[in-house]
């Protein structure tokens, strides 16, 4: 599967392999870029994750490719505010994040009534009734 090419509105996308992801993020931290959020795309056998930063009203991004099943190193050691979005990645994409400071272990937004993480491409998500009724 391909990755995103030019994205209108993002000034620069820098590719960082998984091993040096945290170093790349640290470089932004040192330049005092404001962390915006991370965004994840399901690309078949891997995830494409973009970390977005603000530099004087311009958006710049760091991209990493994560094979499915691999663990993602947590960015909370660099930017604490990443804990919200990383918990969301755990919930909605089923990505295991390693070293997360505040970990809701997959129960941040959704309750555990889904068979598969809802934002994955193969997950059919119609209005499905909960597996068992709590009452």
């Amino acid at each position: 599967m391909s990755v995103l090419g030019e994205v209108s509105g993002i000034a620069r996308i820098e590719d960082a392999p998984l091993e040096s992801l945290l170093d790349a993020l640290r470089a932004y931290r040192q330049r005092q870029a404001r962390f915006i959020t991370a965004s994840c795309l399901d690309r078949g056998d891997r995830f494409e994750i973009l970390y977005l930063f603000d530099e004087d009203l311009r958006t710049v991004a760091v991209r990493t490719l994560l094979p499915k099943g691999a663990k993602l190193p947590s960015a909370t050691g660099v930017y604490l505010c990443a804990f919200l979005v990383e918990n969301e990645l755990q919930d909605l994409f089923g990505i295991e994040v390693e070293g997360l400071h505040i970990d809701y272990s997959g129960k941040f937004l959704v309750t555990d009534t889904f068979d598969a993480p809802p934002l994955l491409k193969q997950t059919a998500c119609e209005l499905q009734l909960p597996k068992e009724n709590p009452s």
């Binding site: 995103l4 090419g5 030019e6 994205v7 209108s8 509105g9 993002i10 977005l52 958006t59």
Partner: peptide
């Protein structure tokens, strides 16, 4: 407009 979206964009 005609056509369907192809490509990516970010709006702030």
């Amino acid at each position: 407009f005609k056509g369907r979206p192809e490509g990516a964009a970010l709006a702030r």
